[in-house]
Design a binder for these strands. Sequence first.
DNA 1: CTTTGTGCAAACGATTTGCAGGATG
DNA 2: CATCCTGCAAATCGTTTGCACAAAG
Lengths: 139, 139
Amino acid sequence: MTMQQQREEIIRALKAKGLRVTPQRFAVYANLLHRCDHPTAEDILQDLNRVAPTSSQATVYSSLQTLRQVNLVREVLLEEGVRRYDANLKPHHHFRCQYCGTIADIAWQALAHLDLKNLKSGWQIQDYEVTIHGRCDRC
Amino acid sequence: MTMQQQREEIIRALKAKGLRVTPQRFAVYANLLHRCDHPTAEDILQDLNRVAPTSSQATVYSSLQTLRQVNLVREVLLEEGVRRYDANLKPHHHFRCQYCGTIADIAWQALAHLDLKNLKSGWQIQDYEVTIHGRCDRC
DNA sequence: CTTTGTGCAAACGATTTGCAGGATG
DNA sequence: CATCCTGCAAATCGTTTGCACAAAG
C-alpha cells in the first residue's frame, strides 16, 4: 500500500465514523496505526511533536477518547497505573516481558481456544483476553 | 478457623515477610483477606474508618505497596484507570460484568488450560491471566 | 454559517512524598 | 534504643474541563 493510499484509508475510516478529519486527529490515529508498540497518550504526544508542534496534550487525550468511542482504538491494560492504546482491532492477546516491559501481540488463533461453557451459571460471556507474563528473547 | 486463629495467621504471615505488625498494616491486610470483592485503596480506607478512625490515606497506600512488594497482595487490572487489590494468592481468573461492574473470581481449574507451547520462539512463559467480559446473572 | 475541534490554563482525582513524632521489635 | 511506620499536608502525575477562538463540512 502506498503512502497516499494509507492516508486515504485513514480519512475514509474517520469519515465512516462521522468524525471530522482534522490534522491533529489524523495524526493521532495515524501514529497509533503505524506503531507496533502500545503507546501511552504521553508517548503519542511526544512522538507527534518530535519534529514540529502538531497537537496539544488536551487534543491528544480527547482524540484518543473519541477514537475509542467509535471503536477505532482500544485501551490496553497491562501494567499497573498505565493506560496504553492500540489501533489493532483484530482480536489478539498480549505477551509482556517482565524484565524490559516489551509488549508483543499474540494472534488470536495462536492460542487454543478456551472452553468457556458452563463457567458460571447465568453469566453470559461477551469476550475475553489473555495476558501472558514472561521473559522475552532478549532478556 | 476461629477469629483468634485468623488473627494469629495474619500476624504470622506479616512476620514471615519481615514486616512489623502495626495495627494499621494488620487492618489493611485483614480487610483485604476478608473481602471477596476487589477493593480500591479508597474502598479499603472507607471500610477501615467506617466505625472509628483506623488508618490515614497515606498509610493505606503505603501498606498496600509494602504488602504487594512481599507478595501478600497483588494488584488487579480490570477497568481503565482503576487499581484494585486482591489478597487471594491462589491463581485465578476474573469475570467482570460490563453492566454493573461486579467482579467474580474464576477458579484456575475452571478453565481448560491453554496450550502455550511454541507461542513465540525464545519467549518464556511465567504465567498468564484471563479476563472475561460479559453479563452477570443479575443484569 | 453551523457545528465540532483545538489550545491554553486551570481544575481534578488518585497516588506519592517530606518530614516530625510515635510505635515496634 | 535503633529502626521502621504513621499521619499530616504539600507535591506530583496523568487526565479532564471551561472557555474563547479556529477550522471543517
